[in-house]
Write a protein that binds this DNA or RNA. Structure first.
Lengths: 152, 152
DNA sequence: ATTTTTAGCAGGTATTTTTTCCGCTTATGA
DNA sequence: TCATAAGCGGAAAAAATACCTGCTAAAAAT
């Protein structure tokens, strides 16, 4: 499918606040409510919009300690890779996992309550996984920006 | 405010899919529609739920090339830091910016179309910023997990 | 060049959902 | 023990979504 300028604006608005009503969107876009409705349905069906979610403030639920954990595997067999990936993806403290180029194999973004919780996470959850060679942790001093918005 | 077990379940459900109706939530939680409605309002007012957003699939809008960019500043004066932070936060290609401990000062998550777009971004946008000492880029080979859900 | 087809949109309506109101019950504290 | 407040359920009102019909303009076909 192709997205025109109106679709781009619509996506920007919905990425910023998905609770806007079709009426409000129609006003901002200069369209009728029906037109907005159909454009949104089309974007959903095409998979451009993958889901709608509520975002929770980390500090309100004791998850404001963020760390990046870089990981090297011991050996890169296919079995090791898929095994490690499926296991690490299950850890709820780990919000993001990326297989990356460079010195380390994986970058993990981990969110927990505090340093003590991070220590426990490393000890009992992460290093309990098989195939891990070495790790290196980098701690977030200040989250300057953290958005889900893709500017299109 | 304090959140009980039902609130935790409710937050889990809304973080997964904010389009669930109060009726559906009421069924899953064993409450009335009104009770669900009031719990959600309370979580919103307390700032536990910060916002509702639509998530867009990167590959559908030509933003599936992801890189982490580590940055060192030339000098750590307060002016440099706040200047750099406010400028880098404006770049739409940069979804996340963290001031971190360790060898580098900042970690950026950058999403663009492809390597060529990344090269242009580095050349024209990022290194155009003042105060940057050195950078190091790490490229994502495979995004294994990428969620916004805080498990509470 | 003319007709046919299709895509996108507006207006109206039915359906669903959200929001509000009211009263009941239970826990809390004076 | 009584007063107060918090949380909940049910019902009604308000609002939003989903659907239907028909119009128009652009694209495709003859």
């Amino acid at each position: 499918m192709q997205t025109d300028g109106i679709d781009k604006k619509l996506l920007a608005l919905l990425q910023d606040d998905s609770k806007r009503t079709n009426k409000e969107l129609a006003g901002k876009l200069g369209l009728s409510v029906t037109a907005v409705y159909e454009r949104i349905r089309k974007l959903e069906r095409a998979g451009v919009i993958s889901k709608y979610v509520a975002l929770v403030k980390p500090e309100k639920v004791d998850r404001s300690f963020t760390a990046f954990c870089m990981i090297k595997l011991v050996q890169h067999t296919k079995k090791n890779v898929t095994g490690f990936e499926s296991q690490v993806a299950k850890l709820t403290e780990v919000l993001e996992v990326f297989h990356v180029s460079g010195e380390y194999d994986y970058i993990l973004k981990v969110m927990v309550k505090d340093m003590e919780a991070y220590r426990e996470f490393m000890l009992n959850k992460l290093t309990a996984l098989e195939h891990i060679g070495s790790t290196q942790s980098t701690f977030v001093i200040n989250p300057v920006k953290n958005t889900t918005v893709l500017s299109i």
